Simulated assay, not measured.
Amino acid sequence: MPKAYWIARVDVTDPDRYAEYMALGPAALIGNGGRLLSRGGRAVALEGGEPRQRNVVIEFDSMEAALACHDSPEYRAAREKRAGAAEVEILIVEGLD
């Protein structure tokens, strides 16, 4: 079964409220099987628009595991803290077999 990669692109609009998300979000991702591969480091746009402030890549064992994490009670609680604190795009892509 191919792995899956959660790609999040984030512009923080309220740092204080976003800190509340950060207190819960990474632990919820890791606790639900995610492995943080990149989180907020340097990003360079080679084509298309500029990268967001934070670009995150998280590996999961499968697409189903990544989707289950997003819908988990722990991550839902983290998302509630993030609401209104950031502009967020999340995409989950399946890896190669």
Rank of each mutant, 00 (worst) to 15 (best):
A77G: 05
D14M: 02
D14V: 02
A85T: 09
L46G: 14
K3G: 02
G25Q: 04
I7E: 01
D61P: 10
S72V: 05
P73C: 09
F60W: 07
G40H: 10
A77D: 04
V44E: 15
D16M: 14
D71I: 08
P26V: 10
W6P: 04
A43G: 12
A66L: 13
R39M: 15
V10M: 10
S62W: 08
G48Q: 02
L37E: 15
E74R: 07
D71K: 13
D11R: 11
G48W: 01
E59N: 04
G33E: 00
D16P: 13
P73W: 11
A45Y: 03
Y5H: 04
A45H: 06
V44N: 15
G95M: 03
L96Y: 00
C69S: 13
P26H: 11
V56F: 01
E20P: 08
A4H: 01
D97Q: 03
E89Y: 07
G84L: 08
P26L: 10
G31E: 03
A8H: 07
G40F: 11
V44H: 15
D16H: 14
S72Y: 07
N32I: 00
R82V: 00
A19G: 12
A85L: 06
E64K: 13
V44K: 14
L36P: 07
L67A: 11
V44R: 14
G33W: 00
D61V: 15
A83W: 12
D14F: 03
V12W: 03
A45L: 07
R82W: 00
A28T: 00
E20H: 11
D97T: 02
T13L: 02
A77F: 00
I30C: 01
P51R: 07
G40T: 08
P73S: 06
M63N: 13
S38C: 13
W6Y: 06
N32C: 01
A78C: 05
E74P: 06
A77K: 04
D71N: 13
R17Q: 13
G33A: 01
R52C: 10
R17N: 14
A45C: 08
A4K: 03
F60K: 12
L91F: 06
L29T: 09
G84D: 10
P51Q: 06
E50Q: 15
P26Q: 12
A8D: 09
G40A: 10
V88T: 09
E89R: 09
G95A: 05
V10N: 08
S72I: 04
L36C: 10
R76G: 10
E87C: 11
G34S: 05
M1R: 02
L96C: 00
Y75S: 00
L24E: 07
Y75P: 04
N32D: 00
R76T: 14
A8Y: 07
I58L: 03
G34D: 01
G95D: 01
Y5I: 06
A4M: 03
L29F: 11
V44F: 15
T13E: 02
A19Q: 09
R79N: 14
P2A: 09
G25V: 06
D61C: 11
P15E: 13
S62D: 03
R79K: 15
A78H: 04
A66F: 11
A66T: 10
E94S: 12
L67H: 09
